[in-house]
């Protein structure tokens, strides 16, 4: 299964074992977490107590009533940085997933439906990308493109585009033999019409599932890139960057600069995974009641 490549999928299936078959609760919790982070990102300027890029206190002061999450080495408020960090994380996640789908879905449709030499070549390219370890490839592309929100999104998108391609292609190869596709041909529909009106709607549920699983992984990859210094240029608040920055002061017992960005990454990835697992259950053709 293609899904096995996703960290989030493994995570979610472990969770499912823990909770038994109560996917409803898992989905619900996931959704609550997601909505919480979307809320944080949307209303960051109103929720954050300080400007995340300005020094507002002493360097590395521990959590107290003025700075509930403490301050980092430059005296910036960690709470504000975590709240603002949700913006970057979510924007990059959605952007990269959208780009990955925009590349993978049309190519998968065409490759699966037309077949032949074109299919062979596209599959070869996509498999080559797919066989790379994701983060390494993202690092290489990010290093090539340089920092910036859009560049990061593209480097993550390249990593995940083959997943869409493979899921779509394999579905299309079976759907194109369905009678309703022949029926569409029999009424004289053009190839493009058949693809858009008869094939695409039938593969869309699996795209949605892959999309939701992908979001969690995109956030992790983005955090990984920023951690390595290949992400958004400082001083923009970013969880991955704050994590690596906080790590330098762990020996000074400044645990707060490391813990809170880390927790944010963990919870948001968990939320996406839980939500996608539930969505998978609802939409997956094998689980879903046969239409």
């Amino acid at each position: 299964m293609v899904q096995d490549k996703f960290m989030s999928y493994k995570l979610a299936s472990t969770l499912k074992e823990l909770f038994g078959s109560s996917t409803g609760i898992i989905t619900f919790i996931g959704l609550i977490i997601l909505l919480f982070y979307v809320f944080l990102a949307a209303f960051a300027p109103y929720l954050a107590p300080y400007d995340p890029t300005k020094s507002v206190g002493l360097s590395l002061s521990p959590p107290d009533h003025k700075h509930p999450f403490g301050t980092d080495n430059l005296g910036r408020d960690v709470l504000s940085r975590v709240i603002y960090g949700a913006r970057i994380a979510l924007v990059i996640a959605f952007l990269s997933v959208a780009v990955a789908a925009a590349i993978g879905v049309p190519l998968g449709l065409i490759s699966g439906y037309i077949g032949g030499i074109l299919d062979r070549i596209l599959t070869l390219i996509m498999d080559a990308i797919y066989s790379f370890p994701g983060l390494i490839l993202a690092i290489a592309i990010a290093a090539l493109l340089g920092p910036g929100i859009f560049n990061i999104a593209i480097s993550i998108a390249v990593v995940y585009a083959p997943t869409y391609f493979r899921v779509i292609r394999s579905q299309v190869t079976s759907i194109k033999n369905e009678l309703y596709v022949e029926g569409a041909r029999a009424i004289g529909a053009k190839r493009s019409t058949i693809l858009l009106k008869y094939v695409l709607p039938n593969v869309l549920p699996s795209v949605v599932v892959v999309l939701s699983m992908n979001l969690a992984d995109a956030i992790m990859t983005e955090a990984g890139l920023s951690f390595l210094g290949l992400g958004i240029a400082p001083p923009t608040p970013d969880w991955g960057f704050d994590l690596s920055n906080g790590r330098r002061f762990i020996l000074s017992r400044a645990w707060w600069a490391l813990l809170y960005p880390g927790l944010a990454i963990i919870t948001v990835v968990l939320g996406f995974s839980m939500f996608s697992e539930g969505l998978n259950e609802f939409l997956n053709p094998t689980v879903r009641e046969k239409r």
């Binding site: 009678l179 309703y180 569409a184 029999a186 009424i187 004289g188 009106k197 709607p201 039938n202």
Partner: peptide, 21 residues
């Protein structure tokens, strides 16, 4: 274009119709 004049009625009507249409 000529398919306007020639049509087919399939055996399995459920399979012959797009489930999302």
């Amino acid at each position: 274009r000529f398919r306007k004049e020639i049509q087919i009625i399939f055996q399995d009507p459920l399979a012959a119709l797009n489930p999302y249409m």
